[in-house]
Design a binder for these strands. Structure first.
Lengths: 210, 210
DNA sequence: CCTACCGATCGGTAGG
DNA sequence: CCTACCGATCGGTAGG
């Protein structure tokens, strides 16, 4: 959402060397923030992983805070963009519960496609400086509102039981999906399989009939 | 589970001054680790909050690692003990799905009763030194096995649909429950209400009949 | 449980 | 993008 270019940028070509370097820095930063946490990841670690010296990072980012905010906001933005695209691709009049099922699949696919960014966001959010956290809170809130809207639509269509509390359902879905970043190893189960399982559990229920 | 006394302990009375001081240190450490993360919490922060000087912490703990491990392992132990007690209190022959419902209630109550310990465990686990993480992994695995057993029993009793993958259900339940630490503010919704909602969603499903 | 201190490492900057 | 450096802070220890 907020892919602001560094002020020092001389070129704005998407594939410029500077922008590719910037992306490389972000990739390594995301991985390190995920693995080590915000404070334990030094700019020297990130610089070394990227193949440059510590001070050189300041040619691309004004501060550690700015770098972290960029990584973490992209962790949400990448997921949100994919979920919105998946929804937009559905024909009008699609069953709102079916919309949620597709949103779950898109969320899980995006989450694990750029897992370092999403995981850095989740793991470091609470531990980042207050001003960064304030801005990230708004990014999170916007994304949560998207889910609130999907659930409200399904409820309005009479597709969700009245006893189910919409916020509880929203947090249950987000919680079970985001927790996969804490236990999934490698490439299995696939994001599609996870989405199918979680959709079946949360909407049809785990209970056997009879 | 692993309430090892400090080697320097002269007394082993549960209410000794030394043990009460130790508990005070752990309480403040848990809160600070939760709020700031592992690396951002200095021993000076913990000492100041407790009302002592930095070096004095070493009278109670051998290192920052040991202090963090104690906080984080108790974050699991407190929850596990309560869940096991809740299960043990049920009459023999209780419907295994009913056992899970009670386990969910106990988990959520314990989680938010000693939220700083549980949250410190969840938030700092990935960022703690490797040897600490290795030991905490085993503590986590033991607790997850408890849930795996509850789900296996319900499945064996024919109470869970065959299409539902047991690990997916286990991680879905743990994920939605643990995620409450990231969004719940103050005292509402209550742990009981959350448990009732999550049980209904995961087992009966959110979908309206018909 | 405190004072005083150590070596190491950190984020950030000046000047090139 | 690098070298060389700064002040601040860290975990930990000696000696009391």
């Amino acid at each position: 959402m907020d892919m602001k270019n560094n002020e020092k940028s001389k070129s704005s070509g998407k594939g410029s060397i500077q922008e590719r370097t910037r992306r490389t820095i972000l990739d390594h930063a995301a991985r390190l923030f995920r693995e080590r946490g915000y404070a334990s990841t030094s700019l020297r670690d990130i610089a070394t992983a990227t193949g440059m010296k510590a001070g050189s990072l300041y040619y691309h980012f004004a501060s550690k805070e700015e770098l972290a905010e960029e990584v973490m906001s992209q962790g949400i933005a990448l997921v949100e963009d994919r979920v919105r695209a998946a929804i937009a691709a559905l024909p009008e009049g699609t069953d709102p519960v079916e919309v949620i099922r597709h949103a779950m699949t898109a969320h899980l696919k995006a989450l694990h496609d750029r897992g370092d960014y999403a995981s850095a966001n989740i793991r470091c959010y609470a531990h980042v400086p207050p001003d960064v956290k304030d801005r990230l809170r708004k990014v999170r809130a916007t994304y949560e509102d998207l889910w609130a809207g999907l659930i409200a639509a399904a409820r309005a269509a009479g597709r969700i039981r009245a006893e189910v509390d919409p916020p509880a359902l929203r947090y249950a879905l987000i919680g079970m999906m985001n927790w996969t970043l804490e236990w999934r190893r490698g490439a299995s189960p696939s994001a599609e399989d996870l989405a199918a399982q979680f959709y079946a559990i949360a909407f049809a229920g785990a209970l056997a009939d009879g």
